[in-house]
């Protein structure tokens, strides 16, 4: 099953590598360079998993996370950070992020987390359908 993934990061080198690596596995992903871009993309398409950098110029990753949770509560978010900030990690988890990954992220590890996040989204969708 195809997973709709959005990668949000202002580091274009990192984004390029990631798009390539996901592509090799026949998993096309979209990317956004900022929080605003990410929210615009989210308004246009229903994403399953969003990989979101914490530190970006302009809109802060945690701020974006909050808005994603409000606008698309079923979309799972994996936070990505270059420097392990415990405070940001706590806030991210408390705001409902699915997981937290430290850069440089091991690709297989990240892939595994994306799959788990997607599984959770599907479980949530199923539970919601049953509840309705």
């Amino acid at each position: 099953m195809e997973i709709n993934i959005l990668l949000v990061d202002d580091e274009s080198d990192f984004v390029e590598t990631m798009v390539k690596r996901f592509g090799i596995r026949k998993m096309p992903i979209d990317s956004a360079k900022s929080g605003q871009e990410a929210l615009a993309a989210l308004a246009a398409k229903d994403y399953d998993v969003i990989i979101l950098d914490v530190r970006m110029p302009g809109m802060d990753g945690l701020e974006v996370l909050k808005l994603i949770r409000e606008r698309a509560p079923l979309t799972e978010v994996i936070m990505l950070t270059g420097h392990a900030s415990l405070e940001a990690g706590m806030q991210g988890m408390n705001l409902g992020a699915y997981d937290y990954v430290l850069k440089p992220a091991d690709f297989d590890d990240l892939l595994d987390k994306v799959r788990k996040a997607f599984e959770r989204k599907q479980l949530n969708v199923k539970a919601r359908k049953q509840g309705a």
């Binding site: 392990a84 900030s85 415990l86 409902g96 997981d99 788990k116 959770r120 479980l123 539970a127």
Partner: peptide
């Protein structure tokens, strides 16, 4: 109340992941 969503979870991995977040601090 957030309804828990049940998945198979590797607890060792979760603890290790979270510990890495705490390590630096």
């Amino acid at each position: 109340k957030r309804e828990p969503v049940l998945q198979e979870v590797d607890v060792v991995r979760i603890i290790e992941d979270m510990a890495r977040l705490v390590d630096k601090e």
